[in-house]
């Protein structure tokens, strides 16, 4: 694997680390199986791309992408909390609605950003090659966001959110308004996914309505790979696991792409993903069995 290909995989892994953290918040912290992300990722990309092409500052575009993603999460939470629609179903409804909404936002299925000012533009031309600049900038953003999320989950409010996911009845008995925490958690999770979409569009030169396909699988794969590696008992470790898991997932894909020699083809990628996640799920059991025998 070449240096550029490796750094490219790391960069895309870091972009998807935001998705992994969002998926972690929904699935693990809130225990809310949320497929909204397949829609909120391209939503973030669409909002940021449209704002950037109309001359608005790219950081503002990222912020708007976060807000748009958050609204998507709120809609799913609303369908679930207000009308009692099963979480999975509520999130699927939001996801398919977002496909149409994303098309409306962009006005067409694909908006190009190749020649636009992005959040990365100021960092190009500092003498460092572009393929270093992108992962570095994204890495710094990931660290900032992971820190903020960890700090949030360590607060009274965040702790109550975690309790909502673990034991809602107990949480309510402790005075936690679980509904509020589900709304806030879902908004936060999808806001992060929206940011990932915005950054993906800016680092890869386009926003396309099809970019959302399989986002949830990628996010879950990253979370599970991270959990297997770190077996985290603290939130900080779990978040680091999300980031590392996401990067490992992308590097594994990159490896599969370059593995013609061992007979793998691009069309085997889905199989690679499934095997990766399955191994990550099976490994802890094997280790557990060894420990007991």
């Amino acid at each position: 694997m070449s240096e550029i290909a490796f750094l490219g995989a790391v960069e895309i892994g870091l972009v998807y680390a935001f998705v992994a953290i969002g998926v972690f918040l929904a699935f693990r912290v809130l225990d809310f199986p949320d497929l909204t992300v397949d829609g909120s990722f391209p939503l973030g990309a669409a909002v940021a791309a449209v704002m950037i092409t109309s001359g608005i500052d790219p950081w503002t575009g990222c912020l708007a992408a976060i807000l748009a993603g958050a609204v998507a999460g709120l809609v799913t939470a609303f369908l679930n909390q207000r009308f009692g629609i099963l979480h999975l179903l509520a999130s699927i409804l939001t996801m398919i609605a977002l496909f149409s909404i994303n098309l409306r936002i962009m006005g067409r299925p694909n908006v190009a950003l190749i020649n636009q000012q992005t959040v990365l533009t100021p960092f190009y031309g500092l003498g460092i090659p572009d393929y270093y600049v992108r992962p570095l900038v994204i890495f710094v953003l990931v660290i900032i966001v992971a820190f903020l999320v960890a700090r949030f989950l360590a607060s009274d409010f965040g702790l109550a959110m975690r309790a909502t996911g673990v034991n809602a009845k107990m949480a309510r008995a402790q005075g936690v308004r679980t509904g509020v925490h589900i709304y806030v958690g879902m908004a936060l999770a999808n806001g992060l996914v929206g940011l990932a979409g915005a950054l993906f569009a800016q680092t890869n030169g386009f926003a396309d309505v099809t970019t959302g396909i399989g986002t949830i699988v990628v996010g879950l794969a990253a979370v599970i790979v991270g959990e297997t590696l770190f077996r985290p008992r603290t939130i900080v470790l779990a978040l680091i696991g999300c980031v590392v898991g996401s990067v490992i997932y992308r590097v594994a894909i990159q490896f599969a792409l370059g593995a013609d020699a061992i007979g793998l083809k691009a069309s085997d990628l889905n199989l690679v993903t499934a095997v990766l996640v399955a191994v990550a799920l099976i490994l802890p059991r094997l280790r557990g069995r060894k420990a007991t025998t």
């Binding site: 070449s2 240096e3 998807y16 396909i213 894909i253 990159q254 691009a266 069309s267």
Partner: peptide, 22 residues
């Protein structure tokens, strides 16, 4: 030859691979 299997994120990774391969 590589196909992205309909997934733009994979398309991006293929692009990086090619650019790296030169």
């Amino acid at each position: 030859y590589e196909s992205a299997q309909g997934n733009p994120a994979t398309a991006a990774q293929i692009a990086r691979k090619y650019v790296g391969d030169g």
